[in-house]
Design a protein around this nucleic acid. Structure first.
Lengths: 339, 339
DNA sequence: TAAAATCATGACAACGATATCATGATTTGC
DNA sequence: GCAAATCATGATATCGTTGTCATGATTTTA
C-alpha cells in the first residue's frame, strides 16, 4: 500500500545487479533460469528483483536474444466461440511459461491475409504461431511461413498434414459415431447438411456420415445431402428443402451447431416438433448448443484443449512436426430421440 | 514470385540505408513518416525498403523509442461474442496505424488479474490499454495503471467515469426504451431479470426498467424482479419463478440475451407459447439472439463499434479523458408481440 | 541584405537485455 | 595427486532501432 510513489521510472537489470552485488549477466541467468548459479546468489538476486519490482523488458530481451517470448494466434474463423476458446486455451498454456499471446484477428478470406501474416512474423518475430482453419490451409501462407522457419502448429489442418505440427480430432470418426447414434435410435432417413467446402473438415464429416450409412447397409441418397455454409440461415434453408421433399427425413445431422439451430428454427416454423417428429444433431458443442430449444445433441470438439496442446507443442517441441489427436465426445441432449 | 530464396536473414535499417545511399536516421524518418525528408529521398528509401522486403523490428523500435506500437486488450468477460467483437473492433482500428494488438484473456475475477495486468504493462510497455467490464471496474487495477501513466480507455465503465477515457452506450435509456416498447404492446405485468451485480450496467438496466414503469404510472412490483447472473441457467430459473407465481407476467425483459434464451427454454418446457402467451426481450443483440426460437427482440449494443472508438481514442488522443457515447438500437423480432 | 527561421540530413549515443568469451575455483577421473 | 572437466561468475560486444545534437543549405523576415 505504501509503495514508492515516485517509482515511475522502471528499474532495469543494472539496478538489480547493483543491489544484489553481482554482474548483469548473473541477473540474466537468474531471469532465464539457467544453471551455474549458486542457490545463495540466486536468492540474493531474486530478493533484489522483487524489492525493486523488476520486470524484464520484452523489447530488450527480444532484441538481444533470439526469442521474443511471444506467440501469435492467427484467427480468421467467423465463429466467436471458436476464436474465444482458441485464445483462452493458448493463453492458459503460455501463462505458465511467461509467454505473451498476440491475437491477430482477420476477416476470413481477406486478400490481405498473406501480407499481414508475413509482416507480423517479420516485425514481431514470434517464437511460434498457432493457426486455425480456414487460414491454416492457405498454401501461400504456409509456404511463406515455412520459408521463414517459424515454428507453427495447426489446429485441425486440412491439407499437407506433414508440413507442420498439428492438433486435431478425428472428424470422420466423430461424424460416423453421430450418424451411428441416429441409426441406433431407429432413424432410417437421415438428412445431412454439409459445411462450407473451404474447410477441410466439411468433407471429413460428410465422409463419416456416408461410411456409417454404408456400414449399416444403407444407400446414401443424394437428395438427403444438402450443401450449407456453416451459417444459421443456410441450415434453415437446407432444412426447408429436406422437410418439404416428398419423403422427408426423420433426423437431420448438421455439420455444425449454427446450422443445426437453423434446422430447429425451420422445424418450429413448420410446426414440426423436435424431437418427437424430427431429431436434430449438430457438431462442435459450442456454448449456445445448450441455449437453444431443445438443447442440441452434438459432438463436443474440445477447442480449448486443442489450443492448449497446440501451445504446448510450440513451447516444448518447437519445430518438431508432431501430430496430436484429441478425444471428442458425443453429447446427447433433448434434440434427438427414437424415431 | 522469384523472391530470393536465401532471404532468411532479415534485412535491417542499415541495409536499406546503404541501398538508398542515405543515413539510417533518414530511413527512420521515412518509416515514421516524419517531415523534413524531400519527396525524392523518401521515394528512394521506399524503393529500397520494398526491394529488400524490409520490415522494422518491433523490439528495436520499442527499445529505442518510447513507443511499443502495441496496445493490449484486457478481456475477462465470460461472453465469447463480446470478447470476439472487442478484439475485432480494436484490431480493425489499429491496423490502419500499424499497431499490434495483444490479447490478454483472463478468467473473470481471477485473483491474479492485478499482478498480470501490471506485469503486462511493465514488461511490454503497451502504448495503451483497452479495458472491458468487469475488470475495468476493479479499483486496484485502475490505481496501479494510473500510477504507471498508461493511456487507457474503458468500455462501459461503471465507476469513477472521470478517471479514464471511456466509450459507452446509455444503458438506462436503452432499458427504458425496451420497457416502453413492451408497455406500448399492451403489457402491464412485465417481469425483469437483473444481471450479475458485479457489473455496473446491471443496476443501470434495472433503473431504466423502473423509470419506464414509473413514467407510465405503474407501480414497480418487487415480485416481478428476479436476480440473475447473466447466465442461461439463471434466466431459466428466474423465468420459472415468475411464470409459476400466482399472477404471472405477460412479458419478461432479461438483462442479456443468454438469460432471455433461458426464459425461452422455460417457456417451451412449460408449454407457454412465445410470443402468443408471453413476450420475451433480451439485451446485447449477441449473434445467437437470431439463432434461438423465436428470434429475440433485443437492444443492439454495437460492441465492435465501441471497441473501434476506444482504440481510436487511444491512438489519436492518448491520455485525454474523453467520454464518447455511442447509439444503441432497439431491434424487434418475433419474441415480442401484443399482449 | 543580414539575421533569423526553417529545412534536410547525418554522426553517434542510448535503450536494456543476451551472447560470447575469459577467468579462476572446485570437482572428477585415472 | 595432477590433468581434465565442470562450475560460477564477470567484462564487454551486440541486437536494430530512435533520440539528441550538429551542420550546412535554403527560405523568410525586417
Amino acid at each position: 500500500m505504501d509503495r514508492d510513489q515516485r517509482a515511475v521510472a522502471r528499474s532495469t537489470i543494472r539496478d538489480v545487479s547493483r543491489l544484489a552485488e553481482v554482474s548483469i549477466k548473473t541477473v540474466s541467468r537468474v531471469i532465464n533460469n539457467e544453471k551455474y548459479v549458486t542457490q545463495e546468489t540466486r536468492a540474493r538476486v531474486e530478493a533484489a528483483m522483487s524489492r525493486l519490482g523488476f520486470q524484464p523488458s520484452f523489447a530488450a530481451r527480444a532484441l538481444a536474444g533470439h526469442r521474443s517470448h511471444q506467440i501469435a494466434v492467427i484467427c480468421d474463423n467467423p465463429n466467436p466461440w471458436y476464436v474465444y476458446e482458441v485464445l483462452y486455451g493458448t493463453r492458459s498454456r503460455c501463462q505458465r511459461d511467461g509467454i505473451r499471446v498476440i491475437a491477430q484477428p482477420y476477416d476470413r478470406a481477406s486478400p490481405a491475409l498473406l501480407d499481414d501474416v508475413t509482416s507480423l512474423v517479420d516485425q514481431v518475430h514470434p517464437d511460434g504461431l498457432v493457426l486455425t482453419p480456414p487460414g491454416c490451409d492457405d498454401i501461400r501462407v504456409l509456404n511463406e511461413l515455412a520459408r521463414r522457419k517459424v515454428p507453427m502448429v495447426r489446429i485441425q489442418p486440412g491439407i499437407f498434414p506433414e508440413m507442420t505440427a498439428s492438433v486435431q480430432i478425428d472428424n470422420v470418426q466423430a461424424a460416423y459415431d453421430m450418424t451411428r447414434h441416429l441409426l441406433d435410435l431407429g432413424h432410417r432417413r437421415i438428412g445431412f447438411i454439409v459445411g462450407d467446402r473451404a474447410y477441410a473438415v466439411s468433407e471429413q464429416r460428410l465422409n463419416g456420415y456416408m461410411r456409417a450409412l454404408g456400414d449399416a447397409g444403407q444407400r446414401v441418397e443424394m437428395e438427403l445431402i444438402q450443401q450449407g455454409t456453416y451459417e444459421f440461415g443456410s441450415g434453415a434453408k437446407a432444412a426447408e428443402q429436406l422437410l418439404k421433399s416428398g419423403e422427408p427425413p426423420t433426423a437431420i445431422f448438421a455439420s455444425n451447431d449454427e446450422m443445426a439451430a437453423g434446422v430447429l428454427s425451420t422445424a418450429h416454423r413448420l410446426n414440426i416438433s423436435v424431437p418427437k417428429q424430427l431429431s436434430v444433431a449438430g457438431f462442435d458443442d459450442a456454448a449456445f448448443a445448450q441455449l437453444v430449444w431443445p438443447p442440441l445433441t452434438s459432438v463436443r470438439q474440445p477447442v480449448r484443449l486443442l489450443a492448449e496442446e497446440a501451445a504446448g507443442l510450440l513451447l516444448t517441441k518447437p519445430g518438431v512436426n508432431q501430430s496430436i489427436k484429441i478425444a471428442y465426445e458425443l453429447v446427447t441432449r433433448e434434440s434427438t430421440a427414437k424415431a
